[in-house]
Write a protein that binds this DNA or RNA. Structure first.
Length: 732
DNA sequence: AGGTATTTAGTTTTT
DNA sequence: CTAAATACCT
């Protein structure tokens, strides 16, 4: 015990030693001799190692440029708008390019809409225009990134049309949601089982965890057996990027190399498991739907005749299979309109191909292309800065956005000492902005990754500034909600072994071994569960209770909300023993019940939760002061896509943090980071502030060089400040 | 043997 | 903070 104490003490001392050395090193390098105030020095762009392009990438770049010129060639063709019979005054509300997109009436159309150019508005007007032209609303399909986005567009279209047409019948949602809807509706026609359940990423992890444990994989070369979450990520990435598991591992997870074969095996078993247990994950939904459309002519004709007009938003984020789906959905009539911006493609890690945009003319040779470059969001000063980011893109389709909005300041870049200083300054600035009468909801702080928001969160709690975190743990990903949902899933599909595993292990006297014994018995009986088979065990009475609960949950005559409340009664004592903070979790259970009160069937309820989970947790209100409804938004850049704020702060602009260290070696990944930077900066309407502390330490590495993205921009486009720390540094 | 408590190591981005 | 490994109970 004494040894241990000394050991940790030594570790502590060692760590402090390291820190001192580190501070000394960076103060040498980075602290200017003159203190505080406005400076004009950032490292030059040549101080960063740029990744080299390999042969394949070189070829790709040439191809890319060819695509770009094809695109430009198509742009020549501008249609003559036909505005007869229109009650809505489109000319009044739209600029020339927007009007052309809205009134396009000769087949496929690609709209390249830069950031803040009124893309959503164009889609709304387009929809309204189609309806005014006599197209029945139910023939229009609106594919967007989230269902919320679809809902918003449909609502705005309704306002536009007022009484002249009904938008209630427009179908809209994500690719996944649409695939799910079609598969269930036409399950009989295409010959699949309608009663599948959808696995979200956590569910997949649970299943993979089960499979892995059953395989009894032994440790190799001292490295621990990979976590189920990592295995799940690898498998899913291989699929959505259409590459082999080995390639994913070599590229991104080289420390998993010894387990390559095991993971491949798990992947195979996982696939079989999903089939035999009537389950589909996100990738399956798209793949099965695509396959059905491709091979089943009757089904394809049916779908094509229902949805004759397809509008796709955020086209740059579609992956390979979604791109192909668009082709099939367009059908013979090819009344398809794709809207996107290749400069804002930030989902390559999950298979998105921004080339989909550039290949559009190859898929639809007779298509029209319209480029919208008038920006209505950001001030001129901000736009000048973001235009420069586009210029520095290697794989970038050229566009120059222009804005007529006058601004009063150039973007600012500010350096701080500690992350705490950065957080503190941002909060002070936010307080100033609020005092000038700006609502907090017009302010956002953005980060490359979630963990970077910790200091700001702490500071805001301290200063009692109300805030909302976007992209945090999802409501449905919280443990107790997962547990509740597991009961409901079993009620629907009693073959769901992962859900069984989850709930059985909540019971006392049941651990890994007995849980799998029970599950095995259930599976052998084809999913029927009878507690009597386990009368010899100490836990049989518990199983009896469970049996009663499940039959209640299956009772379709009882409203879903009431069933969930029954479940809550059952689950509450279990939660008490498993969660130390169970009191604070109780409100979540009621939230779930409320969600279940929308009148949907259990099946629809579960699908909706898996495909379109409610945003972050419902704890927002807790942070706010009494009666205060306005919140500052703290968000990852990914979650901020499509949104805008008057004042935007982007924190932690350090090379290695943003751009992420892992992407520094590969030019394509670095380009993705750059597009993220572009997305982040273009969220700002009036004020853009980029900040960084002098270092950030994460695991054993530290980063202390300003982000290269800051250095790449022209110095006359922003102002640079160094904020000195008031107190002396206590380590020196 | 099997369940439960404690330590310990590892962390991007998400439909 | 969370999942896996280990240690320690019944």
């Amino acid at each position: 015990m004494d040894d241990k104490e000394i050991g940790t003490e030594e570790q502590q001392r060692y760590r402090e030693q390291q820190q001192k050395q580190f501070y000394a090193s960076f103060i040498d390098r980075n602290t200017p001799s003159h203190a505080g105030g406005e400076q004009a020095s950032l490292p030059g762009p040549d101080q960063y190692d740029r990744p080299k392009m390999n042969a394949a990438q070189q070829v790709f770049l040439e191809q890319f440029q060819q695509y770009c010129s094809t695109l430009d060639a198509h742009i020549e063709r501008m249609p003559q708008p036909d505005l007869s019979n229109c009650k809505v005054d489109y000319v009044q509300m739209l600029n020339r390019e927007q009007l052309a997109a809205v009134t396009w009436n000769t087949g496929p159309l690609l709209v390249i809409a830069g950031a803040g150019t009124g893309k959503t508005w164009v889609i709304c007007c387009r929809t309204a225009y189609l309806i005014e032209q006599g197209i029945p609303p139910e023939q229009i399909l609106l594919l967007t990134f989230t269902r919320k986005a679809a809902r918003e567009m449909i609502d705005r279209t309704a306002v536009l049309l007022q009484s002249s047409g009904s938008t209630a019948d427009i179908h809209g949602g994500t690719f996944h949601g649409f695939a799910n809807h079609m598969l269930r509706r036409y399950a009989d026609l295409i010959g699949i089982d309608r009663n599948y359940t959808i696995l979200d990423s956590i569910d997949s992890q649970d299943v993979i965890s089960l499979i892995r444990d059953e395989m009894k994989i032994t440790r190799k070369k001292g490295s621990p057996v990979p976590k189920s979450s990592v295995i799940s990520t690898v498998i899913s990435r291989a699929r959505s990027c259409d590459i082999t598991i080995k390639e994913v591992i070599l590229k991104e997870y080289d420390y998993l190399e010894p387990y390559c074969e095991d993971i491949r095996m798990i992947s195979t078993i996982f696939r079989e498991y999903k089939q035999s247990h009537r389950q589909m994950d996100y990738d399956d939904l798209l793949e099965v739907f695509y396959h059905a459309l491709k091979t089943h002519g009757q089904f394809r004709k049916k779908v094509n005749s229902i949805y004759r007009y397809i509008i796709i938003d955020e086209f740059q984020d579609t992956n390979l299979i979604q791109g192909k789906l668009v082709e099939l959905l367009a059908g013979e009539e090819k009344q398809v309109m794709a809207v996107g911006d290749d400069a804002q493609s930030i989902y390559a890690f999950r298979g998105a191909r921004h080339e989909n945009i550039l290949r559009f003319p190859a898929v639809f040779p007779e298509c029209g292309i319209i480029k919208i470059q008038q920006n209505y969001r950001s001030s001129r000063e901000i736009l000048a800065y973001t235009n420069r980011i586009i210029e520095s893109m290697v794989f970038g389709y050229r566009k120059i956005l222009s804005s007529e909005i006058p601004g009063d300041q150039k973007p600012e870049v500010r350096r701080f000492f500690y992350q705490q200083d950065e957080a503190s300054w941002i909060c002070s600035r936010i307080e100033q902005i609020r005092e000038k009468g700006t609502e907090l909801s017009r302010i956002a702080v953005l980060f490359r990754s979630q963990y970077l928001s910790n200091y700001i969160q702490a500071e805001m709690l301290k200063r009692r500034i109300p805030f909302t975190v976007y992209g945090g743990l999802k409501f449905v990903e919280r443990r107790h909600i997962k547990d509740m949902l597991a009961y409901l899933r079993i009620a629907l599909n009693s073959l769901d072994a992962a859900a069984w595993n989850r709930i059985l292990r909540l019971l006392p006297d049941i651990g890994t071994v007995r849980a799998s014994l029970v599950i095995q018995t259930i599976m052998q009986n084809g999913g029927t569960f009878s507690s009597s088979s386990f009368s010899g065990y100490s836990f049989s009475s518990r199983l009896k209770e469970l049996e009663v609960l499940l039959s209640t949950l299956r009772n379709d005559t009882m409203p879903l909300q009431d069933r969930i409340l029954k479940l809550k009664q059952y689950y509450l004592p279990l939660m008490k023993t498993h969660c130390s903070d169970y009191l604070s979790r109780i409100p979540d259970l009621d939230v779930l019940a409320v969600l279940g009160g929308s009148g949907d069937s259990l099946e629809v309820f579960l699908s909706d939760l898996a495909l379109d989970p409610p945003g972050s947790t419902f704890q927002e209100a807790e942070y706010g002061e009494e009666g205060q409804k306005e919140h500052v938004v703290l968000s990852t850049i990914h979650s901020a896509k499509g949104l805008e704020w008057d004042h935007v702060f982007i924190a932690a602009m350090l090379d290695g943090v943003f751009p992420d260290a892992r992407s520094l070696l590969n030019i394509e990944e670095l380009e993705e980071e750059r597009r993220m930077f572009y997305v982040a900066c273009t969220r700002a309407k009036r004020e853009l502030v980029l900040t960084f502390p002098s270092y950030i330490q994460s695991y054993s590495r530290y980063f202390s060089l300003p982000s290269r993205f800051l250095s790449e921009n022209r110095k006359d486009l922003f102002r640079f400040f160094i904020e000195e720390r008031e107190q002396k540094i206590h380590y020196l």
